[in-house]
Design a protein around this nucleic acid. Structure first.
Lengths: 344, 344
DNA sequence: CCTGGCACTCCCACGTCGTGAGTGCCAGTC
DNA sequence: GACTGGCACTCACGACGTGGGAGTGCCAGG
């Protein structure tokens, strides 16, 4: 059945008012603040229906109504347009991100910016290794039996790892190894490298095999273990403003925030969702402890494909249109900066 | 005047009980739980004196006493010995830290461990660049006009930075530059490098001067700007347990925690305080917002000199002996690991 | 110098109660 | 049939009052 037009207006009004005031909203207040052209009694009838359908609920009898998760969902899907940022805001974002020195700096600035714009907890995932490509691999002799392996990706991310060699090798051997590795790996997507690395050992002179074996072990480790993605976080202060929304205890969110795995599942890009902003409301995600938390996230990257995710966590009662706009904008600008720094 | 022995016992008992129970402690409870060999009336007299001298206070009339900052200070300085950890704990610490792969990993593990042991917010400063020495500098051609400068320090910290060259240079020139830079800088303390870097330009063949100028600029920047120290943080969840101690609002601490500058001032090593554990109680530090917060910190490093600081923040009412023990132990083991990884 | 006793203080938990915002329902109107 | 005004009803919430109990200060006696 097509949902009654006015009923939707009422729901929208309830969501907007509740988000703004943080208090259950009653029929009288609604007709006052929004120019619905009907009386409060009519609104009451609509609200009764909305409640029956599960979009709103009363905290207790004779209190106003508040949206349910289902209500927010409808609001986000149908009733709101992502609020475009003002030109001034856009300029501010751009200016703030432009001064960045390196990848670390970009990520840090982005996450702070996001926290500040949304006044929520912000998370930015570092560009994922597996979805980057190898730009260069360098071997640096630290001592005669120790090499530092430095891998640079196209997103500017640099990984380094110490490698213990089975015996001493001279400078020239190291150079040979370096050349070979770069020949085979440069330009390859990291996801594809494990098989390539495995094949390296067979390509090399007999006397260099032990060294290459050690190296490939280290490389494999980098690709596997180090696949633990890194995260940057900001805006935990904002939790204090919303303490009430989390029925008083900040523990669950603080716990989730410290657990990188949880955050990654929440904001990490799952597929190639492109430039879509994803919204998870309340228990739409898998973490029971975060029942009253919503997650707004999106992917970002230098081109069309995402190399990482970013987003914010906040109470289900949050300003979805603005938050979504901010997340989308920051992701977009970060993508642009990454593209500038690594013309492919 | 020499402080009366029993009065000190009473103060100690008050601190210990208050820390344990989180409630003002009365004269009756004191004589019950600790075997002071006197009556509650006597204890009351002592408490009256202690209060007059400013070591304890009553939240309100007819309530028990709680220690003041001055009381905690006396307790820490005179009345408590750092509680040695059990062998089991020591083994656990060692085992936990031993599996570390690289510096990042050591720091992360250390900070988590510290948070877990003390049940407070833990902070670890990455080994400070200025107090490290250069182990190796590597130049990597990313394109013909771009070099990646990678600096490895004796603490295992790796800094990288992109350098835009004024024109194209061939592989051999880069090698020459690399050799020269390493000759001059390897083994030097980073604090001493600025003057050395400045001198580099004059040492080089005429045709390489423009490149060397760019490089030295980048190096100087690394040393200056990048001197912004990095931090790792863990255990914010523990704040929820102590919410009451911060008169309800976690905002000030959360704010401080996000402000790296503040944290650095609090736990960063100021001088060469050696292996001492430093304790700042309440408003002994400079941040008015953290009046109810104490800071336990110490330096750590591969040898005698500290390359960084670590510590915990918690309510003034905390278990000082245990916390100090944990901080000292973790710092010690981290130092050992750093020493292992970089035999000088 | 210590102790038992006693009067005093005052926080806190608990129960009571009035108030007001908000509702559901119903009869009346366009 | 959809909307409106009116009315009785429901409860959360804050104010107020009260009793109990933990803890203190003081004093006189050992």
């Amino acid at each position: 059945m097509p949902m009654d037009e006015r009923k939707l207006d009422v729901l929208r009004a309830i969501v907007e008012d509740y988000v703004a005031t943080q208090e259950p909203v009653g029929s009288k207040a609604l007709v006052d603040r929004h120019n619905l052209r009907v009386s409060s009694a009519t609104v009451r009838n609509d609200m009764a229906v909305l409640e029956e359908e599960g979009y709103i609920r009363q905290p207790h009898t004779s209190a106003g109504r508040i949206p349910t998760d289902k209500g927010y969902r409808l609001f986000v899907d149908k009733l709101s347009r992502i609020k475009p940022l003002s030109p001034a805001e856009k300029r501010a974002i751009q200016r703030f991100l432009e001064g960045s020195l390196d990848l670390d700096d970009v990520v840090h600035r982005a996450v702070r910016l996001l926290a500040q714009l949304t006044r929520q907890v912000a998370v930015v995932q570092y560009p994922s290794l597996t979805r980057s490509t190898v730009r260069h691999l360098e071997l640096i002799s630290v001592s005669t039996t120790r090499l530092l392996v430095v891998m640079i990706t196209d997103t500017g991310r640099v990984e380094q790892r110490l490698c213990e060699l089975p015996g001493p090798y001279d400078e020239e051997s190291v150079l040979t190894l370096r050349r070979l590795i770069n020949e085979k790996l440069t330009g390859k997507r990291l996801a594809d490298t494990p098989s390539l690395v495995a094949a390296l050992v067979d390509e090399v002179r007999y006397d260099l095999r032990p060294a290459m074996t050690s190296l490939s072990t280290v490389l494999m480790e980098s690709l596997a273990e180090r696949n633990e993605e890194r995260l940057a976080l900001a805006g935990t202060v904002n939790l204090t403003r919303s303490a009430l929304d989390f029925h008083g205890s900040l523990m669950p969110i603080l716990e989730a925030i410290e657990e990188e795995v949880v955050l990654l599942k929440l904001i990490g890009e799952t597929g190639t969702s492109g430039s879509m902003v994803r919204v998870l409301i309340g228990d739409e995600h898998e973490f029971a402890d975060l029942r009253t938390t919503s997650v707004i996230s999106t992917g970002y990257g230098p081109g069309q494909t995402a190399v990482g995710g970013m987003g914010v966590l906040g109470p289900t009662r949050m300003d979805y249109p603005s938050t979504m706009a901010a997340v989308r904008a920051v992701a977009r600008y970060v993508g642009e900066i990454l593209a500038q720094n690594s013309p492919h």
